[in-house]
Design a protein around this nucleic acid. Structure first.
Lengths: 205, 205
DNA sequence: AATCAACTAGACCGACCAGTCAACTACTTT
DNA sequence: AAAGTAGTTGACTGGTCGGTCTAGTTGATT
């Protein structure tokens, strides 16, 4: 019969936004329903629980954003340039979000993951999964950089982990200090971590 | 008249532990009182609010742990060795905590900070303050390493920020993946970040 | 026109939330 | 022994929590 209602989509969108703006624990189902202009009965028609909605909302957000990530990490672009574009993208995105919301909001996946990891395993696993997707982009990029001889790291997988730790940590620090400028120049540090080879006069023979 | 009651200390201790184990939002005042074997009336005799207790509990935790940090970052120890000891300390501490609690718990300051940063400014500021204390240890260490010619970084303060981002991010990742082994070998990456000079045959003249 | 499933509506539930209060105990100071 | 102070107790409040339930409303299918 084809979908006519937009209630589910609105719930997903509002839930993601509110949880990112605040936190999982401090946003209530009532809050979400009110902002989405959906009644509670409808909420529980679409979702089994609050945790269920959160998982769906984060999955949906990834689904929407993936094309942009695919573009940034396109193999058409030189690997080190991908990393530079990515870090610039993070800075711009956080700046925009902070301007909208009045506060630096950090990494949405990292924030909810770190909040509930010890007491909601379903949400934790979803975050772990999404972190894994991010790591795949990074590992692939670093691996290519290594093959191109641009980088000295011994293990691209480990390097991807380190880069993701650094970037997520920086977003967390920016959130705690409420200062987006912390994120302004992540690129060079990322290059240090993955062992960028300096152009030490490698002259063409 | 000298203190006789231990209720306040118990509340501080239990609150820190529960919030670290779980999260600020998911731990109730009743939970804390029950575990501390203190009645609610006494709680509000000592603390104005839940947020107030949390701030006091984190401050107290720092107070207790500071001597250990002072020891690790003692200027009697060569600067790069301090960083190695520190990263080893983090690994061991997280492993111990994970064994006790059954789950990797991440950085206590980072976790609560990232959880409430956007909606509780008092707690956020306390976390920012504690992060600042940590950064001072790091900046001082990196600065010394630079003066000793062990390190190439241009700005010790920026480098301290990067190191702290990386380490806090790694703890967050370990929490989300519930895998303490992520933290096993932070040392080398820290050295990359701060621009350790490789011993490139610098021979004694 | 009848049927059916997707969806909506909002009253309702018991549990729990942070926080209040007044009566009480115990200890110290005078 | 009286008074004062620090700490204790647990019942209580009003509001909110996640979640349920039943009765209805659509709009497409037959």
């Amino acid at each position: 019969m084809g979908r006519t209602s937009t209630a589910k989509e609105k719930l997903l969108e509002v839930a993601f936004k509110l949880i990112w703006d605040q936190s999982y624990g401090s946003v209530s189902v009532d809050d979400i329903c009110q902002r989405a202009e959906v009644k509670k009965g409808s909420f529980y028609h679409f979702f089994e629980s609050k945790a269920d909605l959160a998982i769906a909302a984060y999955e949906e957000h990834w689904r929407v954003k993936q094309p942009e990530m695919d573009r940034i990490f396109s193999s058409q672009i030189p690997p080190l340039e991908r990393l530079a574009t990515w870090s610039q993208f993070i800075y711009e995105a956080q700046k925009l979000k902070a301007a909208e919301h009045g506060h630096v909001c950090g990494c949405p996946y990292g924030s909810i993951g770190s909040e509930v990891a010890t007491h909601d395993d379903k949400i934790r696993l979803k975050c772990e999964e999404m972190l894994g997707r991010m790591l795949r982009y990074l590992e692939c990029t670093i691996s290519e950089a290594k093959q191109a001889g641009l980088v000295e790291c011994s293990c691209p997988k480990a390097a991807a982990n380190q880069v993701s730790s650094f970037v997520m940590g920086a977003m967390m620090q920016a959130k705690i200090q409420n200062d987006v400028e912390v994120l302004k120049n992540l690129g060079p540090t990322i290059l240090s971590i993955i062992g960028e080879k300096k152009a030490v006069g490698t002259v063409v023979a």
